[in-house]
């Protein structure tokens, strides 16, 4: 299944793109993240939340959307 992954903030600096479409066979968000961690090892140390279909979801959720966004906290002001 093709999933569009969107990266915000410093995550986009690690992946060197704001979004990409990747093929996954995984069923949960955390399994998808494991694949991404292997592709981008620096992602592993970063804190971020995951949105699926524009809704923040827990990492145990089943993948049900075609678009997933990884959102880090921002501290600047």
């Amino acid at each position: 299944m093709d999933l569009k992954i969107k990266y915000f903030g410093l995550l986009a600096e690690i992946t060197l793109c704001n979004e990409e479409v990747l093929e996954f066979s995984e069923t949960t968000i955390s399994e998808v993240l494991e694949v991404l961690h292997n592709k981008y090892p620096s992602l592993r140390d970063k804190d971020f939340q995951v949105a699926q279909d524009l809704e923040i979801v827990s990492k145990d959720s089943i993948v049900s959307a075609t678009e997933i966004a990884l959102l880090p906290p921002f501290s600047g002001g």
Partner: peptide
């Protein structure tokens, strides 16, 4: 509100 480089 919070910002990071070009994003808010």
């Amino acid at each position: 509100g919070a910002i990071y480089k070009f994003e808010g």
